[in-house]
Simulated assay, not measured.
Amino acid sequence: MSTIYLIRHGQASFGTGNYDQLSDTGREQARLLGSYFAGLGERIDRIYSGSLQRQRDTAQLIAAALGDPPPIAIEPAFDEYDSDAILQAFARSLTPEELAEAEWPGLHTDRRKFQLFLERAARAWVEARIEAEEMIPWRGFHARVTTAVANIMRSEGRSKTLLISTSGGVIGTLVAQVLGLSNHAGLELNWAIHNASITRLIYSVERVSLSMFNGLPHLDRAPLRHLITYR
Results as ranks from 00 to 15, higher is better:
Gly180Val: 08
Ala143Ser: 09
Arg139Ile: 11
Val149Lys: 08
Met153Phe: 03
Asn190Gln: 13
Ile193Trp: 07
Leu201Asn: 04
Thr146Gln: 06
Gly172Asn: 06
Met212Gly: 01
Gly169His: 10
Thr147Gln: 09
Ala196Asp: 04
Asn183Val: 08
Ser197Met: 05
Leu181His: 14
Thr146His: 06
Thr199Ala: 04
His194Ile: 05
Leu174Val: 11
Asn195Lys: 10
Asn183Ile: 02
Ser209Met: 12
Pro137Leu: 14
Leu181Cys: 05
Thr147Phe: 04
Val175His: 01
Arg144Met: 04
Ser165Asp: 04
Ile171His: 13
Gly168His: 15
Leu162Pro: 09
Leu187Glu: 07
Ile198Trp: 14
Val170Arg: 14
Ile152His: 03
Leu201His: 12
Trp191Leu: 05
Ile193Tyr: 01
Leu210Ile: 08
Ile198Ala: 01
Ser209Glu: 09
Ile193Cys: 01
Ile198His: 10
Arg144Gly: 00
Gly157Ala: 04
Trp138Gln: 00
Glu206Val: 06
Val178Phe: 02
Trp138Val: 02
Met135Gly: 02
Ser211Tyr: 05
Arg200Phe: 04
Ile193Met: 03
Asn195Ala: 03
Gly140Met: 08
Met212Phe: 05
Ser209Val: 14
Glu156Asn: 00
Gly186Ala: 09
Ile152Phe: 04
Glu156Met: 15
Val175Glu: 02
Thr147Gly: 11
Ser211Met: 08
Thr146Arg: 13
Gly168Tyr: 12
Ala192Gln: 10
Trp191Glu: 07
Met153Asn: 03
Pro137Glu: 15
Ala192Trp: 04
Asn195Leu: 09
Ala143Gly: 02
Ser159Leu: 10
His142Phe: 11
His194Gly: 00
Gly180Trp: 13
Arg207Met: 06
Gly180Arg: 14
Ile193Val: 13
Ser209Trp: 12
Thr166Cys: 14
Thr199Met: 06
Ile136Leu: 15
Ser165Phe: 10
Gly186Arg: 10
Thr147Cys: 13
Ser197Cys: 13
Glu206Ala: 12
Ile164Leu: 11
Arg158Gly: 01
Ser182Gln: 07
Leu181Asn: 02
Gly186Tyr: 06
Val145Trp: 08
Glu188Ile: 08
Leu174Trp: 03
Gly169Cys: 07
Tyr203Ile: 01
Ile164Val: 14
Leu189Asp: 00
Arg154Tyr: 12
Phe141Gly: 03
Phe213Tyr: 14
His142Leu: 07
Gly186Met: 07
Leu210Gln: 03
Ser211Leu: 04
Ser159Thr: 08
Arg158Tyr: 11
